[in-house]
């Protein structure tokens, strides 16, 4: 297509947006709502995943050994556990290291003085990290076997079990529900944009017929609809970005029962929004323009015949 044709196609497309005032406004509203919902859920999902990932990375399993167990035995167990495919790392905490950690983590001098290098009751332990924190429970069960009964004093997992499991489950369900909702809204907006383009094309059947009769190329008939869709997608994406900002800035999640999780995450989400503004803007614009152009082109291909 020549530059001149491109200019004309752009002009026809922009004129179409203005001529179809109400259609354009309705389409923009639909796209704005869709992208807004996707945006809020995506940001929420990223923040939750980020938070839970951080916590999950810190989740570990500590196995404490009785003082009479020879060190070689503990190191042998460490090697055996480290060779498992689901285990990311195993650290051996000697009595000396346990003392150091005790000293680092305690602030009260009185508590610190309870343990000295000479009188160190802190047990030796293995700290196990799994690739999937959900698997820590299985690993903990290993040390409940009879063979370890004499050696293992305590396994720390039991203390955190319920917290770990609910955290893993929440992260999973938030991600799933977010994507399901996004998919539903994408489908709805597809149906709406497809039908709106169809109605616009049918309402302009007369004009399209004239264009064909006077020898217009397919580009001139079809491309203005795509320009129109791109403009709608662009404006819709910008409005959605503004709406997401306002939603997070003024904590409107409180008024939205569906987004109850977003409520207490709003400050983190706002921070995520600002620190990833460029990426979020580009993705939203691409999503807005890409989806409307795609939806419109499906309708145009189907309804504008040559």
């Amino acid at each position: 297509m020549s530059l001149r044709s491109l200019g004309r196609v752009l002009r026809f497309g922009l004129m179409n947006v203005l001529r179809n005032g109400w259609f354009s406004i309705a389409s923009i509203i639909v796209i704005t709502i869709t992208l807004f919902i996707i945006g809020v859920f995506a940001i929420q999902s990223f923040v939750i995943v980020g938070t839970t990932q951080g916590i999950q990375d810190k989740l570990d399993l500590s196995v404490y050994f009785n003082d009479d167990v020879p060190e070689e035995d503990i190191l042998a167990i460490r090697t055996a556990v480290a060779n498992r495919p689901d285990v990311k790392s195993v650290d051996y905490i000697s009595k000396e290291r346990a003392f150091e950690i005790w000293q680092e983590r305690r602030t009260s001098e009185r508590v610190k003085s309870l343990v000295t290098p000479e009188d160190n009751p802190l047990p030796r332990s293995l700290v196990i990290h799994a690739y999937d924190p959900g698997k820590l429970g299985t690993l903990a069960k290993l040390f409940e076997r009879d063979q370890y009964q004499e050696q293992v004093r305590r396994v720390s997992y039991r203390d955190n079990q319920s917290v770990i499991e609910s955290l893993v489950a929440t992260a999973r369900s938030v991600r799933q529900s977010g994507w399901i909702l996004a998919a539903i809204f994408f489908f709805l907006s597809f149906v709406l944009i497809y039908n709106m383009t169809r109605v616009i094309i049918l309402s302009r059947a007369h004009e399209i017929e004239i264009m064909r009769l006077v020898g217009s190329t397919t580009t001139f008939v079809r491309a203005p609809y795509l320009v129109e869709a791109a403009v709608i997608g662009f404006v819709g994406a910008l409005l959605a970005l503004g709406a997401v900002y306002l939603f997070l800035r003024y904590d409107l999640a409180s008024a939205t029962p569906l987004l109850s999780i977003a409520k207490f995450l709003a400050p983190d989400m706002l921070e995520f929004f600002w620190s990833n503004l460029v990426t979020i803007t580009i993705v939203t614009l691409l999503l807005g323009i890409g989806s409307t152009v795609f939806m419109s082109s499906v309708a145009v291909r189907r309804f504008v015949k040559f």
Partner: peptide
Amino acid sequence: AFALEVSDASP
């Protein structure tokens, strides 16, 4: 003019 515009005629 429209018939010419959509046929890529020059201004």
